[in-house]
Amino acid sequence: MSRADVRGEPVGESEGAAPSAVPEPGTARAPGPLWSLGLLRSELLTTFRRWRTLALLGVLAAVPVLVGIAVKIETSDGSPVGGGGGGGQGPAFISQVSNNGLFLVFTALAATLPFFLPMAIGVVAGDAIAGESSAGTLRYLLVAPAGRSRLLLTKYATVIAFCLAATLVVVVSALAVGALLFPVGDLITISGTRITYAEGLGRALLIALVVAASLVGIAALGLFVSTLTGSGIAAMATTVGLLITVQILDQIPQLDALQPYFFSHYWLSFADVMREPVYWDDLVKNLGLQALYAAVFGSAAWARFTTKDITA
């Protein structure tokens, strides 16, 4: 890259200005190609060592436990849950949980995806830049110099990693609770066909990936909000506020022309993975929409962050 090429020359040029006896400090070692990974590793370590991050993951891990126990108590007399209907928005997974523990995974994801998961992402994404800014650490990262684009990309990669981690925490917790409280074995898809437990596990993993990918949009949105303010709390609150607003607007029938553009509109399409054959239409729409959000708000965040005056 041009920047790396330029480096050697000016160092030599300014060398004349240095006091002659000095063994030229900082005759900068060319950065290794994997340097960005070092920064990412540091970022991941920093994020996942925060108590807040661990608390959020703890809450997410608790949801399947609560759902599992509730279903267990509800069905202890042999009656099915919720009359087998589940009419509203959520897929009718919950009625199946008592038959097969694996369904607790789908139930837990359906329970956490509308709010808990995106809220956790909103907190982490909103804090990404604004939190560093309000702590003052941002200026030291930038004079290190981490590079603004690189720091932003690293932050986004970390938030995505957190999306995946958060989803997996729900899945793993649900798998464990499901296996503990309920029978496991072959299961029946939404379409009524029977698949093996191993294939069911595969589908569960696929669903986890789809759910994690569903959060990419709000992650980009949160990161953008994070570049707008110097207060971590304000960025988190704004992102979570936007989430709630969009979730409400998505329920208003008069807005159905706009709703396909809401980042949360196709979230529950992950249930289609449990159809036989898998019904891809909404899944693809969802992933496309998330990619669009990531592109638009990622660019906006980049444009904002690379030109911003860092005064905190």
Binding site: G26, A30, L45, Y140, L141, A144, P145, A146
Partner: peptide, 9 residues
């Protein structure tokens, strides 16, 4: 360690 990791050189 974190600040040092942010320095590419």
């Amino acid at each position: 360690l974190r600040y040092d990791a942010a320095d590419p050189t």
